[in-house]
Design a protein around this nucleic acid. Sequence first.
DNA 1: CCAAAAGTGTTGTTCATACACCCATGT
DNA 2: ACATGGGTGTATGAACAACACTTTTGG
Lengths: 237, 237
Amino acid sequence: MRLDILKQYESQTKCLVALDSIIFGFDGEQLKLLLVKRGIEEEQHTWSLMGGWVQPDEGLEQASNRILFELTDLKDIYLEQLHTFGNPSRDPVERTVSVAYFALINVEDYDHKISKSFEAQWFAMKDLPKLLFDHGAMVDMAIQNLRYKASQHPIGFELLPEKFTIPQLQKLYEAIFGMELDKRNFSRKLLSTNLLVKLDEKQKGYSKKGAYFYKIDEDKYKKQFNTFLNFLPGNNA
Amino acid sequence: MRLDILKQYESQTKCLVALDSIIFGFDGEQLKLLLVKRGIEEEQHTWSLMGGWVQPDEGLEQASNRILFELTDLKDIYLEQLHTFGNPSRDPVERTVSVAYFALINVEDYDHKISKSFEAQWFAMKDLPKLLFDHGAMVDMAIQNLRYKASQHPIGFELLPEKFTIPQLQKLYEAIFGMELDKRNFSRKLLSTNLLVKLDEKQKGYSKKGAYFYKIDEDKYKKQFNTFLNFLPGNNA
DNA sequence: CCAAAAGTGTTGTTCATACACCCATGT
DNA sequence: ACATGGGTGTATGAACAACACTTTTGG
């Protein structure tokens, strides 16, 4: 390696590189966000996204999985890079570039004991507290992205248990979009994707009749992910 | 600021933060990419994306505009953050996190004198050389993103002069998607957006009859940007 | 038997596609 | 006059939105 190249690298200032996770969950009624209390006494009652630092020998993807695992004990979660935030004044302590990822998890899978050690808590999207730094902007971008993705794919089931019912999925979509959907049209559109597999089992307890469980056909889903579906009424302004 | 917080920041290793630009252009026939020759003798004939370092007091957006300006002398260019690449081994010299932006520029606006000082050159997308580091992956992601965006918006005109004809736009779309489109359906879809304003002027020289110029209605376009249009045949697999 | 949620079909309208001819003009 | 690319209309089928009744079963 030539010396002048090395100099070119060495003369550059380095930045702290952080990672923040926008973690969405669904409890059957509401879309929620998992936040942690920042351990700074002076900034009491300041909630923030779960975050961490990128380690020297760690890729970004890898780091975001690690951080999510540390908080939730969950692996193999839907996790996607959202955007990188690098405004020089975004972190008043020191310049930090933050790569934001968003995650979709099933609230049922989340172990509440863990949340205590991090002082983590689910918040309804409609009722979010003020967030640290530019985390509010990150959440805004994430919800927009989630809406967008959900309008194109049945991605929503990532937020549900493995076995789910169509009415559950519908409620989730209604929560994501903040609008009511017609159940006949919704189920027709959904089933027309041929991505759902009907199971023999019915959900018990929630309703008297009980709704059939479905699961996703993972293989087909992955193959078709780039086939855009239209999941919302009124794409035609 | 409390000391323990500062320590938490200080104990973290910092990374070099770079920025790479995927610059698309259109010459009327082909979709092209602007590449620069890397000034490393040992890596002769290695082409790479135009890049640079993020400066200490500079936002990412700002840095990508600056870098684009340094290469092309152009301002107010369509520029969008694509993805951040942070694989620890992506840059063999030293760990560098790179934020990739993609830009759309009109080839006519580009001053060819400048390109010499940077040894920059346009390459047809179909005929790209091997690129430095993971720049190939960046380009792949960018073209996918461009296709996706273009299928939803008439974004393509960003690659054309201010006044453009419908046949020009169609050629551009055909280049982006690598397929032929029906001119009747294309112009109907396009005009149905009501985002184009017909001018009195006709294009001369290219065809005998001459095609009318149009311009974009910027205000409407910005407002409607999140109204998704379907610009491609066969969204229905 | 009644309340509550699940499940299912039809119709009108809109949108997408496929396709072919005339127009304007420079040579 | 003719060659070249510009511009337009229609008919068919698919998908969407709007809408209401029957089914199941726990209480």
